[in-house]
Design a protein around this nucleic acid. Sequence first.
DNA 1: GATGAATGAGACTTCATTCAT
DNA 2: TATGAATGAAGTCTCATTCAT
Lengths: 233, 233, 233, 233
Amino acid sequence: MTSPCPLSQLAGCVRAKRERRKEARPGELLAAALDLFVEKGYAATRVEEVAQRAGVSKGTLFLYFSSKEELFKAVVRENISGRFAEWGEELSTFEGTSEELLRYCMTSWWERVGATKASGITKLMMSEAGNFPELVRFFQQEVVQPGNDLIQRILQRGVHRGELRAVDPTYGIYSILAPMVFLNMWKHGGGSCGDARVDLNPPQYIAAQVQTILFGLSSHAPLPKPDKKKTSA
Amino acid sequence: MTSPCPLSQLAGCVRAKRERRKEARPGELLAAALDLFVEKGYAATRVEEVAQRAGVSKGTLFLYFSSKEELFKAVVRENISGRFAEWGEELSTFEGTSEELLRYCMTSWWERVGATKASGITKLMMSEAGNFPELVRFFQQEVVQPGNDLIQRILQRGVHRGELRAVDPTYGIYSILAPMVFLNMWKHGGGSCGDARVDLNPPQYIAAQVQTILFGLSSHAPLPKPDKKKTSA
Amino acid sequence: MTSPCPLSQLAGCVRAKRERRKEARPGELLAAALDLFVEKGYAATRVEEVAQRAGVSKGTLFLYFSSKEELFKAVVRENISGRFAEWGEELSTFEGTSEELLRYCMTSWWERVGATKASGITKLMMSEAGNFPELVRFFQQEVVQPGNDLIQRILQRGVHRGELRAVDPTYGIYSILAPMVFLNMWKHGGGSCGDARVDLNPPQYIAAQVQTILFGLSSHAPLPKPDKKKTSA
Amino acid sequence: MTSPCPLSQLAGCVRAKRERRKEARPGELLAAALDLFVEKGYAATRVEEVAQRAGVSKGTLFLYFSSKEELFKAVVRENISGRFAEWGEELSTFEGTSEELLRYCMTSWWERVGATKASGITKLMMSEAGNFPELVRFFQQEVVQPGNDLIQRILQRGVHRGELRAVDPTYGIYSILAPMVFLNMWKHGGGSCGDARVDLNPPQYIAAQVQTILFGLSSHAPLPKPDKKKTSA
DNA sequence: GATGAATGAGACTTCATTCAT
DNA sequence: TATGAATGAAGTCTCATTCAT
């Protein structure tokens, strides 16, 4: 108490260690949860295993997340929902053509979501949607709707600039969504739906899909910029 | 069986009935299991419910399938009976344009597979592939590879006839595959991925996707004619 | 199959044994549950222990009662609620004086409920009423209300016959209820509220309370029938 | 404490404050625990909640009470401080009739005990006696016996003055005790036992019970005078 | 002394699987 | 062969208690 040692420093030190752990815990748990949810699915993941992988006990997990469901929602928020604001911003300030935008978006989606474990969440939701209706509602609201809105804005922007056809917006978004969802499923389907023997290269896949989305497969629809892409043999 | 004793004849009769039921049992169980696995996923499907829907007791189910896992595998194997020979035939004798062929194939796929219970198998494989790696190879061989081959033949035919670009065959097929797989997922409780508020109409969806696949969304790639084009080769 | 032994007899035998067990189970479980609920309270009773005491496994209990709460409700219905119809009937056909009726009722209550384990249920409800609001509602509806109604009918009958004062019915019933509830608590309170050193004899206790309830302690209120009861020393 | 060093003086000051808080701690904890034990019962009360209500951390509670059980025992012991000496005195010097005395005693009990937090102890003992047999003897000695003695003196006094019947003293006291105990239970969440819809008014309840205790419900025992009788001894 | 993060035994409940009948 | 009562391992979640700070 009357020690010459600066108490506040010591206290700071002492406190820091505990605090640091406490502050690190949610992140460690979320990381472990993401891993396991993606690896085994929602239902098959046991909270105790999540805790173990995060290096804590079962009880500790419930100190930070009041239920398995809340844990899952936190994982979604941490890994997906948070990104939409940023993307919306990028879309608003983007200055290139629709072709450039589309290519940028899909590539960017792959880099930031598709290639990461976060993509497993979408796969998981598609797999276990039937049960856990509350999670479906949450995911729909937190991920699907913002995602669809974003795609629709891309289409509208293109139409506005005279670069895209005014397709039916309801079905138009699926031309962009489907290839991404497929890639996502392919990645996590372990090759059961995609061809396991084919080493699908995502960037090439995306490039090819963008090409089709914009210009189609028909030879009657000439490509405007043959600078980089293969033309007919 | 043809014993002269009247009693045993009666017994034979009775037995025959039993036999028939007994032989029908596995099929009834597999049908019920398919329904439930597709609807609720593997983990959430209770074997008792499967038995009930098949009209037998829980114990009886285990007489035919030694475990829930074996039941699942049997469901998948049972329902993968390639219709590919038939389709291959149709493709060989088709005489229309590539546009017509593509439209025909996708519509036909929807009618013969997508809209039927068989589509559930694909959904199942995509959802549960991770948990049943042994089935993946099987599914890959029996469904994925033949399917991909078929699509590739369509593309090659179109290129041959000068109607389609000579896109990279590896990635080109996904332009056709992805929309179908997406529709399949969407139908089976993909409400979490697709927008639940949108009442997706499969024929319209397919029409829109075919349009995009052929002519793209870009306004630089004008559609040949708004009426049903009929340019023979 | 073609054995000369009467199959139906054997089947009957076989079935009987199982059936008998199945039919006996709920009763055995209810008995065990009553014991333990009374002994340890609702919250402190573990369903596994109930199952064990009934000689079955934990899972079996849930075959018959879908939850601990339902188990408790069944115990209440089995041991208390069921009695009110009978009592109401007795009250309707009773022909003696109010004094006789009151004496009969309280004695009868002691013999049929108070002296049995069923009395522990009321003690338990008073102890743990705070939690389990659903149980309180149930008990209130299933036990308290019918009980109060019965007491009120006794009072009304007495007033009608000119044997009892027309006391405020709201507070009048407590003159009868309180001594019974007290006896109940005394019995299960282990002597903490009653005097443990006093070997309270329930029949004598009841006789004394009936005396007071009817004629009071005041010496100004003369007893009409000194035939059996002690008078002043 | 009175050290000449200024710093230590300051420390002394700080320490004094701490000491005071420290000494107050157990009392605050016991008060909080009493509230919660009475309100929710032993099992349903969480020690963390007790600590929170006392404004300390869960860990601190365990510095003062080594376990939840010890806390409970301390709560009971702490709150059993006999007011019986005072009451004995009042009884010795009371000059009114037995009717007045009885009315006074019960009303006074309600005001000084029943209506206060102290009544919770009785409720607690009755509810949890089974789980804490060691406390029963204590409570019996400190509360039950003195209370019974007091009631017995009231009865004896009445008999002596010719105002009360010479009822069996063992069972006579329960005529007075039971209504008070019942009211006590009723107040503390006995909503499950009393009728929750009835807004029991304690003074009215007591008045009605006194009436019954003295004159009974029988119409053959007429009340002496409807006005406040004042016959001196 | 005081804190509060961490623990882990234990509660209720579900359900795949077994087996006596 | 068929049944369905019975099992018990496993899952989610709670909370009294401990202990590093």
